[in-house]
Lab assay of single mutants.
Amino acid sequence: MATGGRRGAAAAPLLVAVAALLLGAAGHLYPGEVCPGMDIRNNLTRLHELENCSVIEGHLQILLMFKTRPEDFRDLSFPKLIMITDYLLLFRVYGLESLKDLFPNLTVIRGSRLFFNYALVIFEMVHLKELGLYNLMNITRGSVRIEKNNELCYLATIDWSRILDSVEDNYIVLNKDDNEECGDICPGTAKGKTNCPATVINGQFVERCWTHSHCQKVCPTICKSHGCTAEGLCCHSECLGNCSQPDDPTKCVACRNFYLDGRCVETCPPPYYHFQDWRCVNFSFCQDLHHKCKNSRRQGCHQYVIHNNKCIPECPSGYTMNSSNLLCTPCLGPCPKVCHLLEGEKTIDSVTSAQELRGCTVINGSLIINIRGGNNLAAELEANLGLIEEISGYLKIRRSYALVSLSFFRKLRLIRGETLEIGNYSFYALDNQNLRQLWDWSKHNLTITQGKLFFHYNPKLCLSEIHKMEEVSGTKGRQERNDIALKTNGDQASCENELLKFSYIRTSFDKI
């Protein structure tokens, strides 16, 4: 039985969820670079991206490699990797027998973001014989899940209580170790020597080791999670996991709180800001991140802002960003909400898709409305799209047979046209069989910064309504002859009103 693990408890099935942008060198404390989270699957090609990484700022997932063999891993080693800020997950990587050479110096898994409450997941690794993470000293947050690894031993010899604050939620089941077939031998045991430290858990006094050649490092209890030197002297209180010299914040392997210019500090002093819960960055760093993602459509890219001495992905609820200094300031009234469309555009074809934009005031991208039916549609669209004030790209209304009016965009005031449909149009209306009105132009103002209007096959939309939009939106004169079809717009509506004058002759039985 794995020490510190839980057996036999019912657990939810383990679901495996399925960018080499360097964020800056980590400095003297770390020998390499800070790398983003990685999802490495199918083959070993991307694994080489770990070569210079000291910190993975995010998670590391290595999974679904069915053609790899043990010899493929023999020359692979990433000794610079010290810390993973989120979680480490391995799933069905064939041929991998140990992690001792792959990650010989991995010391800390912070667990800032977890995989279903777990910071370390080893699942269905069919050839893994031992973990071998002999320098792993601290899992700051989260638990361990090690399950269905039929060859995995050296679990009962690990004292997880020396690595985690609590072992109650560890789930370590259905491994070879369960069948008591392992016969784990710690260093020196074969020669009758006791080389590794022994600890007591559940009444068992057991030597602690990761492999037959690597003991588990056990520091004096007084050192807590700070770690200790090879001689057993406690590291500085700002260290986490390990250090090369005692009581020196510049000799830590990793930091308990924050890293700044080669030393570990309790908090980031001005003019620095907390970033990702582990390091200090200056304003320029946060500003660069903001600008890199301002026009990016890459998933996970955030326009970072500053709030409460932190550089964070977005302002919290009730705050909006001051564009001059990136500071989050309290909103006066309802907060603006910028919604970034991942692929640059979004099609609204149902109430469900409209709900995804609920509360958005600025759309960074283009909207395509293609709704053919739905219950209580006008009210639903207004509830979900009615706060949109600005669209950076274009607005396209296409084959939306259920629409009679666009009044559900009740606050839309600006279409920038930074991206144009077919390279020309910022407003595009095609084949809307029941569209009769755009907006009530006596109450609604709309500016279209650039781009043209396109109207074709809107049989109940009168040309007068379209011409009014040209005047109000500032697009009059931009359109070419064929942009607004004269014969297919309003051709099934009563669009022309003329005053009919009647004269009559009164007659009676005795007068003409």
Rank of each mutant, 00 (worst) to 15 (best):
L99G: 03
Y154S: 02
G37L: 05
V34G: 08
D247R: 13
K217R: 08
H236K: 04
F115I: 03
S323V: 03
V253Y: 13
E130H: 09
I185L: 09
C235K: 02
I158Y: 02
I82C: 04
G37P: 08
L332E: 15
L88M: 05
N322Y: 12
I222N: 12
C239H: 00
L332M: 14
P246Y: 05
M125R: 00
H226D: 10
N202Q: 04
P336M: 09
D75Y: 13
F285R: 02
P269S: 04
H48F: 05
R145Y: 06
N282T: 09
I84S: 00
V281D: 00
T250S: 09
Q204G: 04
T157L: 03
D165M: 10
S284L: 10
K310N: 09
M125Y: 00
W210R: 01
F285G: 05
H214N: 09
T320Y: 04
L155D: 01
W278R: 03
C209D: 00
F66G: 04
V200K: 02
L152P: 00
H290R: 04
G227K: 07
E314L: 04
E168G: 03
P220H: 11
N195D: 14
Q287V: 05
I139M: 08
Q204F: 13
H226M: 11
G142A: 02
D288F: 15
L44K: 08
E124S: 05
D72F: 06
V206G: 09
V305F: 10
V34R: 10
E57N: 07
Q303A: 03
S324D: 10
L128M: 09
K251Y: 12
L44Q: 08
P36L: 11
T45H: 05
N170G: 05
K67L: 09
K193G: 07
A198D: 08
G111T: 00
E238H: 10
L47S: 13
L240S: 12
E238T: 05
L44R: 12
I306P: 06
N202D: 12
V218L: 09
I222S: 12
L63Q: 14
G111P: 00
T157Q: 04
R141C: 03
G32V: 13
N117M: 05
P316R: 11
R298F: 09
E49S: 12
N105S: 10
L240G: 11
S284K: 02
N308A: 04
E51H: 10
L63M: 14
N325P: 08
I306N: 02
R162Y: 09
I56Y: 00
L289I: 15
M137D: 04
S166V: 09
D247N: 05
P313V: 05
E97M: 02
D39S: 12
T140H: 05
I139N: 00
W278M: 09
C234L: 00
N257S: 12
Y87C: 00
Y154R: 04
N170W: 06
Y134E: 04
V253A: 10
D159A: 03
L120D: 00
N42M: 05
V200W: 02
A190H: 14
H290A: 03
Y273W: 15
I222M: 10
G333I: 11
H212P: 13
C328Q: 00
E57D: 04
L233Q: 09
H212C: 06
L90V: 06
F258T: 04
K67I: 03
L155A: 04
A198K: 11
L133P: 01
V265K: 08
C243G: 00
F123I: 00
L155S: 04
F73L: 14
H290L: 06
D178A: 13
E130F: 12
Y94T: 15
Y171F: 05
N170Q: 06
C223H: 01
L76K: 14
E124G: 01
T229F: 05
A230E: 12
E130N: 11
N242S: 08
E314C: 09
L152G: 01
C255E: 00
N202H: 03
P270L: 10
C264H: 00
P70M: 13
P334L: 12
L90R: 00
T45C: 15
N42V: 04
I139C: 03
L76Q: 04
N242P: 07
L136K: 00
L327S: 09
S77H: 08
D178P: 07
F103V: 05
V200R: 02
C328G: 00
N149M: 00
S317W: 00
A198I: 05
D288H: 03
Q299V: 08
N195A: 14
P187Q: 05
V144T: 05
H212D: 07
H212M: 02
C286A: 06
L44G: 06
F205S: 02
L63F: 03
L128E: 00
D39V: 14
R297Y: 11
I122P: 03
R256W: 04
H302E: 09
C215Q: 00
I185N: 14
F116S: 01
V34I: 05
E147M: 05
V93I: 04
N170C: 10
T320N: 14
R145H: 04
D75Q: 07
C209K: 01
L289F: 02
P249T: 12
V206I: 10
V218A: 09
D178W: 13
R74L: 03
S225A: 08
F73I: 11
T45M: 15
K148Q: 06
S54A: 05
N242Q: 08
Y304M: 09
F258Y: 12
R298P: 07
I158C: 01
V281I: 05
C293V: 08
L326Q: 14
S237G: 09
G241P: 01
Y304K: 05
S166T: 14
K100I: 07
C219T: 01
D247W: 12
S98P: 00
D169G: 11
F283R: 11
L120I: 15
P104H: 01
H291Y: 06
P36H: 04
D177V: 07
V121E: 00
N325S: 04
K100L: 12
N257V: 02
S213P: 01
V108G: 05
N150I: 15
H48S: 11
R256G: 05
L90N: 00
P336D: 14
C186N: 00
F66I: 06
C223G: 01
L120A: 05
H290S: 06
P36S: 14
E97L: 09
L128Y: 00
T199S: 06
T68R: 08
D177N: 11
R46E: 13
A156Y: 10
N135T: 11
F258M: 05
N150S: 08
H59V: 14
A156M: 11
D72A: 08
L131P: 01
P104Q: 02
M83T: 05
G232S: 08
K224Y: 08
E238M: 07
S244R: 14
D169T: 05
I306T: 04
C252Q: 00
F205L: 08
I82N: 09
I139P: 00
V265I: 13
